[in-house]
Every structure is written in C-alpha cells, then in structure tokens.
C-alpha cells in the first residue's frame, strides 16, 4: 500500500510538471492557433538560466525562480514578435516549421556552449516521512508550487480585465478586436504567461533531474498529448489531463515497464482519439 501511495505522490509530482507546461501550451495552441513546438525548449532555456543565476551567480533559489520567470516571459514575447507574428494568417503548419527552426537554433546553441548535462542543488535537501509516504522535500515543493500557480492563473483569467480579454480572444478573435481588444497585445501577453509558467516548471523540476539540451523534446510531445486529450484551448482539460498522465506514467513505471514508460502516454492518446476524434473535453473546434 505504501508503495502504491509513494508512486501516487510521484505521479502527482510528474503531473504537476506536465500541467504547468500544458497550461501554457493550451493557451498558445488552443487560443492563438500556433503549434508552438519550441515551448519545451524554452522550458530547457529556463533550466539553464536557473543554473546560471543560482549556481554561477550564487543567488537564492526563490529569488532565482522569480528572475527566471521574468526573463523567460520577456523571451516568450520576443519569440512571439519575431517568429510567430509575421506568420499570422498563414496555414498552421507554417508555424510548426518555424517552431522546428527555433528548436534547432536553441538546442544547437546550448549544446555548442555546454554539451554536458548539469545538475542543480536542492534548496531544501531533506526527506519527508508521513503516513508511510517517503519523499524528497523538492517533490512537495513541485506539487505545491504547481497548485499555487494554477490558482493564480485561474484568478487572473476569471477576475481581471486582461484575463477576460484573453478569454474573449479565445472565443472569437474578430469579435474581440471589434469590441476594442488589442489582439496583438493579448497575443504577446499569452506568450509571456505561458513561457513564464514553463520557466517555473523548469526551475521547480531542475533539482530533481539533470538538465540537458534535449530535456524539452519529450516533455513538449507529452504536453501536446495532454492539450489534445483535454481539448484545444481548455484550461480545465489541461489540468485534468496533466495530472492523469503523470499518475498513469508513474503507475506504468512501477507495475509494467520503465523502458516503455514514454509509450503509454502516446498509446492512450491514439486510443482516446480513435474513440472520440475531438478529445475528452469539449474544447474549441
């Protein structure tokens, strides 16, 4: 039983990471129609930035978290302005190609400068024991951090004018611009939010794993799976899908096979879409 509970906690923690990345992606992919495949690589940049700020710069972990989120928010806006905005109105597959170009650039750049995998020290290096569950403190930090960010995002979207504007653009871009919403600004804002969420995920996850130039590739594939299962543009879908996938994966590693752990996510997606071609939750068509 305690083995099962431990796996469940690990699943929720993996899921927290997925949710943070998938939330940003569902905003960009579902709302702005951009297949932002480089999202995972911006996540990777976030982890390297943490290494620079915290290990090389000697700055406190929590301050580094805020610095990384802020810098990556700016990076997200820059990416939107220089790469995706000139492509607005062209077929979606073109944004996909541009994203692959961006992936190649970011990965080559990082690998050219630092080819070795790096590790980041844990801010609180203790092990917690509670009711048969044994876990590193960092796992709890990831889980709690994700919940805080999700709640903040929900509050922002439901309670502020800017958040409502994002929702308006999601529902009807032309209608939104007709009532005076600056779609360009909303688009940049969406990128800033999404990329800083990815940076937060990277900073929270970095002490638990090595950071390497290709760390974002598998993650972004899974985030796409979550976004599609959850329904394009559906925030609720991304949250539920992310946690479900994390738990499913932890269970698959524990009870079936760790070599094929990445296969389950993709097999489940194919199965779900074969039965329901537009995803589990009602997203945007």
């Amino acid at each position: 039983m305690s083995f099962f509970l431990n796996q469940l906690v690990i699943g929720v923690q993996i899921g927290s990471q997925y949710v943070m990345v998938a939330l940003g992606l569902t905003l960009i992919f579902g709302i702005l129609d951009i297949s932002h495949f480089a999202h995972g690589h911006l996540y990777m940049i976030g982890a390297y930035l943490l290494y620079i700020v915290m290990v090389l710069g000697g700055i406190n972990y929590w301050l580094a978290l805020i610095i990384c989120m802020a810098v990556l928010a700016v990076a997200g806006v820059v990416v939107e302005r220089t790469v995706y905005r000139p492509l607005r109105g062209t077929p979606q597959i073109n944004t996909f190609i541009a994203a692959i170009g961006l992936i190649l650039m970011l990965e080559t750049l990082v690998r050219g400068i630092q080819p070795k995998a790096l590790s980041v020290p844990k801010p609180i290096d203790t092990t917690l024991r509670f009711a048969g569950i044994t876990m590193e403190a960092q796992r709890l930090i990831v889980i709690v951090g994700a919940i805080v960010l999700i709640v903040l995002l929900q509050l922002f979207i439901k309670r502020t004018r800017l958040g409502t504007a994002i929702e308006a653009v999601a529902q009807d871009r032309e209608g939104a611009s007709l009532v005076g919403i600056n779609v360009n600004r909303i688009s940049a804002l969406t990128f800033a939010i999404a990329t800083s969420l990815a940076a937060a995920a990277a900073v929270l996850m970095a002490p638990l794993a090595f950071i390497s130039p290709e760390m974002g590739s598998m993650l972004i594939l899974k985030a796409f799976v979550i976004v599609v299962i959850g329904g394009l543009g559906s925030i609720k879908g991304a949250i539920v899908g992310g946690y479900l996938l994390g738990i499913l994966e932890a269970m698959a590693i524990a009870y079936i096979s760790s070599a094929y752990k990445d296969v389950f996510a993709f097999a489940v997606l194919i199965l779900i879409l074969a039965i329901r071609p537009t995803g589990l939750f009602r997203g945007r068509e």
Partner: peptide, 24 residues
C-alpha cells in the same frame, strides 16, 4: 483509426505513433 481525426489532431496522432515506433 487516425484518419478519423482532422487538422492538428491528425498531426499529433501520427506524431505519437512515430514516437511509439521509435521506442519499440
């Protein structure tokens, strides 16, 4: 099964199939 889906869904489904084949 995969051609029942449309647009971006089809792209993602085929990509997933590719990852499965690679892992196998």
């Amino acid at each position: 099964p995969s051609l029942r889906t449309k647009g971006p869904y089809f792209a993602i489904v085929t990509l997933c199939f590719n990852v499965i084949v690679f892992k196998v």
